[in-house]
Nucleic acid binder design. Sequence first.
DNA 1: CCGTATCCGAGCCGATACTG
DNA 2: CAGTATCGGCTCGGATACGG
Lengths: 126, 126
Amino acid sequence: MKTHSELGNPVHIAMSLIGGRWKGEILFQLMDHGMLRFAEMQRLIPGISQKMLTRQLRALEHDGLVRRLVYPQVPPKVEYSLTDTGRTLQPVLTALRDWGKDHGAPRVGKILSAENPLSGETPNPE
Amino acid sequence: MKTHSELGNPVHIAMSLIGGRWKGEILFQLMDHGMLRFAEMQRLIPGISQKMLTRQLRALEHDGLVRRLVYPQVPPKVEYSLTDTGRTLQPVLTALRDWGKDHGAPRVGKILSAENPLSGETPNPE
DNA sequence: CCGTATCCGAGCCGATACTG
DNA sequence: CAGTATCGGCTCGGATACGG
């Protein structure tokens, strides 16, 4: 019995599946290219390390969003692609990205300038 | 020179603003009720602690998504509401929630059964 | 080429107790 | 009522090194 974490909330469920630093970017690349090898993704996603790419890929695979195809060769060859379920994320991720472009970017790291200058205002309560 | 954290990715930007365990739920409650006091939100969001509610609310306020209205009374009274920017998140969060309801719920915690039984398949490469 | 293993700091998150 | 303080566990994420 868990004292908490009821996890009945769809928003949080989606978040736990596609949230984090890299998952969104990974999914986008797979949407664009359809099929990618490990090294290709690393080239397409600057800044990501092998560890994180592997970990996130494994998580996505575990959650049934990404398919992993291993070719038993030497040198090894692994191809990643979206599952059917993974593809259903496209509108969601697009919505996320569009919002980020419109509203997130200007205010990330640099605070607002002249839109909401007051914080913790003190009105006259009746 | 930053060796990493390019942060030019809109998906990640949006994630950093609305991601996490509670922010989505908080924003949904504010969308529904328009204006909420601290204790009300705690009642509406089962499982959340004062600490997390405070912290997430502060973060949302810092990012310009939530407005905080303090009445200098005793006992204290604080009202939270969405800013104009915060309201623009509605379609995004709705998309997230809808996806979570459709695809996330059945496979969270319990793995797939007969949709993608193979993981790490071994095709005949050429 | 495609990973694992290890170390490390930072932040998230929950539980509990305390305060103006 | 609306927080803050403190603790501890866990995960995230980066750096580096090693392995099949």
